[in-house]
Design a binder for these strands. Structure first.
Length: 313
DNA sequence: TTCCAGGGGTAGA
DNA sequence: TCTACCCATGGA
């Protein structure tokens, strides 16, 4: 699969004043972009050489814009968009970079815990997210029981087929809305996206959200316990323990370990034998309410530094 | 041809 | 609660 990882439009036509966002002192753009493989999934367009990322985004008005974010002076973020209000654009950036999430307690814990100091020193702990939980749900379903290369292909077909085009370059699309997917017959959807048995879950969730039977935004209610959110996520077709734990992380809750094949491999290497999912969970149990976040950024010896599964493009 | 990948759903014990 | 089996897809 190939597509331009970075798009440079004629900025003389579209350039608008950059938005400056002041970031928390414990924020790292690099670490957030590399927190997992999400930046390699459309409609994200990463540029690792400049530590920046762009995204084609459909705004609330229906307008499709390109938003880019890069490091600015004095630890600020420089955000550019060819449309939308500064407030809406900043809100999207704050959401996808988890800028409003406080990490001070987590970093305090890591600094005081043998072997975890690197996490706080590197300012790790924020996950790159999608602007909507709907997009994250679909992408999580598309990571299950498949290879990363296939995940990228399925997401690309989904975006290309059903997303709204960016006017400056209509070949670049935003992530489709629930309504856009729900409007397509499920058989056509399955044949186009080629997501196998996952098509029913993807399309079904889109229909449920579009018709108001499922309210994903309600899961952002901070008064809910993680157990409550977990139960509601597990009730979604196609979302199991792994997917729900991933989504909890994207919702700013790091207290569940998203056990996948990578976790089993790494914990197995640490313990010198094959391990079960329960053993992986038990391995991180000592980290209590931080166990999911600790797993996501655990400084595995084999990998030197870093994140859970920041799969190469 | 067979296996399996950043799992999930289901039936049966 | 645990295990076994199946699930579409596509690359190795």
């Amino acid at each position: 699969m190939s597509f331009e990882p970075w798009y440079t439009p004629d900025m003389s036509l579209e350039r608008r004043p950059a938005i400056t966002i002041t970031t928390p002192t414990d924020f790292s753009l690099f670490e957030t972009l590399h927190s997992h493989g999400w930046r390699h999934l459309l409609p994200f367009y990463p540029n690792d050489s400049t530590n920046s990322i762009a995204r084609i985004q459909r705004l609330g008005s229906g307008t499709v814009v390109r938003i880019s974010v890069a490091e600015g002076p004095a630890s600020n973020l420089m955000v550019e968009a060819d449309g939308g209000t500064p407030d809406e654009v900043e809100g999207i950036i704050r959401r996808i970079l988890q800028l409003d999430r406080s990490l001070s307690d987590f970093h305090e814990y890591c600094s005081a815990t043998p072997g975890l100091a690197r996490i706080s020193l590197a300012r790790q702990g924020r996950m790159l997210c999608s602007p909507t939980l709907f997009e994250d749900c679909l992408k999580v379903i598309l990571t299950t029981n498949t290879t990363w290369a296939q995940t990228k292909g399925m997401v690309k077909r989904l975006v290309d087929a059903y997303g709204s085009p960016w006017p400056t370059d209509p070949t670049l699309k935003a992530f489709p809305t629930p309504e856009q997917i729900a409007a397509v017959p499920v058989d056509d959807f399955a044949a186009t996206v080629r997501a196998g048995y996952r098509a029913q879950s993807l399309h079904g969730l889109a229909v449920d959200v579009a018709e108001g039977r499922t309210d994903l935004d309600a899961l952002r209610d901070p008064s809910l316990t993680s157990d409550d959110v977990l139960k509601r996520l597990l009730a979604l077709r196609g979302i199991g323990p792994y997917g729900a734990a991933c989504l909890l992380l994207y919702l700013g809750r790091g207290d569940r370990v998203n056990v996948d094949s990578w976790a089993r491999t790494l914990v197995g290497q640490e313990l010198g034998r094959k391990v079960t999912d329960k053993e992986v969970v038990a391995f991180f149990e000592p980290h209590g309410k931080w166990r999911g976040l600790v797993y996501s950024f655990y400084p595995w010896k084999e990998r030197g530094a870093g994140a859970t599964a920041d799969v190469a493009a």
